[in-house]
Design a protein around this nucleic acid. Structure first.
Ligand SMILES: [Mn+2]
Ligand SMILES: [Mn+2]
Ligand SMILES: [Zn+2]
Ligand SMILES: [Zn+2]
Lengths: 145, 145
DNA sequence: ACCTCAATGAGAACGGGTATCATTATCGTC
DNA sequence: GACGATAATGATACCCGTTCTCATTGAGGT
């Protein structure tokens, strides 16, 4: 059986603080259902829409905690709102295509790119811990229109 | 003789609107002196420090116009403030190393990385117009400390 | 010099994100 | 199962970068 990200994270948080509240659990469960990044607002709306009256502050607190534990990644596209997505414990990871026109965001993976990034990381004095890549342009739909 | 970015841009804006105000010119001149990205606040302070009483709104307006003309690039590191840097008309371009610890930002170039990005751009339905790459980690100074 | 209208700057307004604090709920203990 | 300590929560005030508004200024054409 494959342990889901959600289960993995709930267990981790449990062992971390000893407590388990409702708001954090709902945020984790929601994130676990997403395949790419979502904004705090979308998380808040999503959880509320399902019937849980959680507060925005709790959403941000949950995200902050998850970020510190390396369970979630902040994605900043430059539109003024941060987005968040789960980090696969198995190392799976993707980058983002952003449509300048309609704002759509979709994930992509590319091994050759990862290898090139790996090589850049060396020889710069820096100890690189993470990297972000965004490709911006016009998506298929917007090109057609 | 090499035409500077500043001259190139001033001429371009001139031909674009027919008018030339003081605020915009000061912003362009300031950006022309920078080798990497700076925040709107830094631009405002920099220009004011040199004796011109320009307003913040004018800084943002100038940056917006330059961005639309593709003369300036918005750099969003995710710290809540956008930065801007000139785009070399000759195509020269760099990406950024960001220290998670002290916040320092420095540019780097890597040809192999650019080629890998070029290859990714194809075959995705997208017409990629630009890309951003950030490497995050601990800089030399912070690693030593 | 005069007119027109883009450009400007001060300050109000906006919005995502954070801090505060009274209330609620979880968990260990009895 | 009730109780107490204290972490978690949620409403809301607040912060600050950015945008909007509007009265004023000034560049360029005549
Ligand atoms: Mn990668
Ligand atoms: Mn590049
Ligand atoms: Zn994603
Ligand atoms: Zn730069």
């Amino acid at each position: 059986m494959t342990e889901t990200w959600t289960d993995h994270v709930l267990a981790r948080m449990r062992s971390e603080t000893g407590r388990s509240g409702n708001a954090r659990r709902r945020v984790v469960e929601f994130l676990g259902r997403q395949d790419c990044c979502v904004s705090a607002q979308e998380i808040h709306d999503g959880v509320r829409g399902a019937g849980s009256r959680i507060g925005v502050a709790s959403v941000y607190r949950a995200l902050e905690g998850l970020d510190e534990l390396g369970l979630v990644q902040r994605v900043d596209l430059g539109d003024g709102t941060s987005r968040f997505e789960r980090i696969d414990p198995r190392g799976d990871h993707h980058h983002h295509l952003v449509c300048d026109d309609c704002g759509k965001v979709e994930p992509f993976e590319d091994l050759a790119l990862e290898e090139a990034l790996e090589r850049v990381a060396g020889g710069r004095g820096y100890e690189v811990a993470a990297h972000d890549v965004f490709l911006r342009g016009a998506c298929g739909d917007c090109r057609a229109a």
